[in-house]
Amino acid sequence: MNDAIDVEGLRKCYGKVLAVDGVSFRVPAGATVGLLGGNGAGKTTTIAMLLGLLIPTSGRIRVLGHDMATDRFAALARMNFSSPYVALPGKLRVAENLRVYGHLYGVRGLEARIAELAAQLDLGPLLDRPAGSLSAGQKTRVALAKALINRPDLLLLDEPTASLDPDTGDLVRTWLERYRAESGATILLASHNMAEVERLCGHVLMLKAGRIVDQGAPAELLARYGRDDMEAVFLDIARDRRAA
């Protein structure tokens, strides 16, 4: 199977601070992989390097077969990204925001695509409202619509359900499952929500201090650490308790 993401020896230093320390991993096409770790573990830095926003200190990244150091625009056209920490222009209406990104990603039949996403994510009543006036849950749905506007082959999500109520969080997770099943897209998900990771991810990379300290399917990790849920596994790793 082809790898959607192939990372080899990735390092990122900010001055003397080592944020990512020799990370290597592969994400097969069509998989949903979780990137877990505490604050400062290197998740966001890793995602920023995968997106080409950040130049690695060393190492190699291939995304959808393209080397991100030399050919990142070919990959960027086929991927997308959502994070509650990166805003969409608040003064633009929702439809205008989606139109802007539709143009940037060269989406054909843009108005039809916006209508389709609006129907699927229940955005119809929001299309004419300024993005800045929406609630956190509504903003997340709009951000998801933006991230799906180009029907990406690879979706990078940084805490996609942070600050959402359980109902909206479940709606987003259901939608992600549906999109992946229908499109065969690859999803890399950074999250602090362990239940979400167990539900969505077939494989989990555990990051700590910029290194991958463990990885495997959620069921494998649960068995290895002798735990009933991923939260306990996360705490074991965060507190340096060894696997059984």
Binding site: G52, S83, V86, A87, L88, G90, L104, Y105, G106
Partner: peptide
């Protein structure tokens, strides 16, 4: 500056715009 004020640069530069 509009892109900075709206904190939108992250989205813009992960799109294929050169």
């Amino acid at each position: 500056l509009e892109e900075l004020w709206s904190r939108n640069l992250g989205h813009v530069f992960v799109s294929p715009i050169r």
